[in-house]
Protein backbone atom coordinates (compact mmCIF):
# COMPACT_ATOMS: atom_id res chain seq x y z
CA UNK A 1 0.00 0.00 0.00
CA UNK A 2 1.20 3.51 -0.74
CA UNK A 3 -0.11 6.61 0.90
CA UNK A 4 -0.95 9.63 -1.21
CA UNK A 5 -1.51 13.23 -0.42
CA UNK A 6 -4.27 14.85 -2.38
CA UNK A 7 -3.23 18.52 -2.40
CA UNK A 8 -6.04 20.88 -3.33
CA UNK A 9 -4.77 23.56 -5.70
CA UNK A 10 -6.80 26.73 -5.48
CA UNK A 11 -6.42 30.22 -6.96
CA UNK A 12 -8.24 33.30 -5.70
CA UNK A 13 -10.53 33.73 -2.72
CA UNK A 14 -12.97 31.16 -1.41
CA UNK A 15 -16.68 32.07 -1.18
CA UNK A 16 -17.92 33.12 2.28
CA UNK A 17 -18.36 30.23 4.73
CA UNK A 18 -22.15 30.66 4.93
CA UNK A 19 -22.73 31.18 1.19
CA UNK A 20 -24.69 28.52 -0.79
CA UNK A 21 -21.59 27.74 -2.90
CA UNK A 22 -19.49 27.08 0.18
CA UNK A 23 -22.24 24.95 1.71
CA UNK A 24 -22.45 22.85 -1.48
CA UNK A 25 -18.64 22.46 -1.47
CA UNK A 26 -18.61 21.37 2.19
CA UNK A 27 -21.35 18.84 1.51
CA UNK A 28 -19.53 17.41 -1.53
CA UNK A 29 -16.10 17.17 0.12
CA UNK A 30 -17.74 15.75 3.27
CA UNK A 31 -19.45 13.05 1.20
CA UNK A 32 -16.18 12.23 -0.60
CA UNK A 33 -14.41 11.89 2.74
CA UNK A 34 -17.19 9.62 4.04
CA UNK A 35 -16.81 7.39 0.97
CA UNK A 36 -13.03 7.17 1.53
CA UNK A 37 -13.62 6.26 5.19
CA UNK A 38 -16.17 3.60 4.26
CA UNK A 39 -13.67 2.10 1.82
CA UNK A 40 -10.77 2.09 4.30
CA UNK A 41 -8.86 4.57 2.14
CA UNK A 42 -8.85 7.47 4.55
CA UNK A 43 -5.79 8.54 6.54
CA UNK A 44 -6.23 12.22 7.28
CA UNK A 45 -8.06 15.20 5.86
CA UNK A 46 -7.86 18.90 6.69
CA UNK A 47 -8.44 22.23 5.05
CA UNK A 48 -5.44 24.56 5.24
CA UNK A 49 -5.92 28.22 6.04
CA UNK A 50 -4.89 30.76 3.41
CA UNK A 51 -1.29 31.32 2.36
CA UNK A 52 -1.29 34.63 4.29
CA UNK A 53 -1.12 32.56 7.49
CA UNK A 54 1.95 30.60 6.32
CA UNK A 55 5.48 30.90 7.66
CA UNK A 56 8.57 29.38 6.04
CA UNK A 57 11.68 28.36 7.94
CA UNK A 58 14.97 27.42 6.30
CA UNK A 59 17.40 25.84 8.74
CA UNK A 60 19.82 24.44 6.16
CA UNK A 61 22.44 27.00 7.15
CA UNK A 62 23.88 27.76 10.60
CA UNK A 63 21.21 30.29 11.55
CA UNK A 64 17.60 29.35 10.77
CA UNK A 65 15.84 31.98 8.64
CA UNK A 66 12.15 32.60 9.25
CA UNK A 67 10.08 34.44 6.64
CA UNK A 68 6.44 35.38 6.32
CA UNK A 69 4.56 33.50 3.63
CA UNK A 70 4.92 30.40 1.46
CA UNK A 71 7.98 29.21 -0.47
CA UNK A 72 9.24 32.23 -2.38
CA UNK A 73 10.06 30.30 -5.56
CA UNK A 74 7.09 28.92 -7.45
CA UNK A 75 9.13 26.20 -9.17
CA UNK A 76 9.25 24.40 -5.82
CA UNK A 77 6.50 21.86 -5.33
CA UNK A 78 4.97 20.21 -2.32
CA UNK A 79 7.23 17.19 -1.89
CA UNK A 80 5.72 15.68 1.23
CA UNK A 81 4.35 16.68 4.59
CA UNK A 82 4.09 15.94 8.24
CA UNK A 83 1.06 16.76 10.32
CA UNK A 84 2.12 17.69 13.81
CA UNK A 85 0.44 18.96 16.93
CA UNK A 86 2.09 21.85 18.73
CA UNK A 87 1.09 24.33 21.43
CA UNK A 88 1.90 27.39 19.33
CA UNK A 89 3.85 28.61 16.33
CA UNK A 90 7.14 28.74 18.26
CA UNK A 91 6.91 25.05 19.15
CA UNK A 92 5.89 24.23 15.57
CA UNK A 93 8.89 26.18 14.24
CA UNK A 94 11.25 24.24 16.50
CA UNK A 95 9.98 20.96 15.10
CA UNK A 96 10.00 22.36 11.56
CA UNK A 97 13.65 23.39 11.95
CA UNK A 98 14.50 19.79 12.79
CA UNK A 99 12.49 18.62 9.78
CA UNK A 100 14.22 21.16 7.54
CA UNK A 101 17.61 19.86 8.61
CA UNK A 102 16.53 16.24 8.20
CA UNK A 103 15.31 16.57 4.62
CA UNK A 104 17.58 19.46 3.62
CA UNK A 105 14.69 21.50 2.27
CA UNK A 106 12.80 24.53 3.52
CA UNK A 107 9.57 23.76 5.36
CA UNK A 108 6.33 25.69 5.16
CA UNK A 109 4.39 25.84 8.41
CA UNK A 110 0.67 26.47 8.10
CA UNK A 111 -2.11 26.02 10.62
CA UNK A 112 -5.20 23.93 9.97
CA UNK A 113 -8.63 25.41 10.54
CA UNK A 114 -9.81 24.32 13.95
CA UNK A 115 -12.73 21.91 13.51
Amino acid sequence: MTQYMLSVRHAGAYPAMDSPEAQRMFAATGAFTDRLKANGQWVFVGGLQGTETATTIDARGDAPVVTDGVFPESKEHLAGFWVIEAADLDEALKLAAEASKACNDPIEVRPFHSM
Binding site: T53, A59, A86, D88, D90, R110, P111
Partner: peptide, 17 residues
Protein backbone atom coordinates in the same frame (compact mmCIF):
# COMPACT_ATOMS: atom_id res chain seq x y z
CA UNK B 1 -4.33 34.66 15.89
CA UNK B 2 -4.53 32.14 13.04
CA UNK B 3 -0.95 30.84 13.05
CA UNK B 4 -0.74 30.69 16.84
CA UNK B 5 2.06 33.20 17.40
CA UNK B 6 2.29 32.98 21.18
CA UNK B 7 2.39 35.71 23.82
CA UNK B 8 5.40 34.28 25.55
CA UNK B 9 8.97 35.12 26.33
CA UNK B 10 11.32 33.07 24.18
CA UNK B 11 13.98 30.90 25.74
CA UNK B 12 17.41 29.71 24.60
CA UNK B 13 15.79 26.86 22.63
CA UNK B 14 14.07 29.19 20.22
CA UNK B 15 15.26 28.65 16.70
CA UNK B 16 16.05 32.28 15.94
CA UNK B 17 17.57 35.22 17.84
Amino acid sequence: GAAGIPFRIPDENDVTD
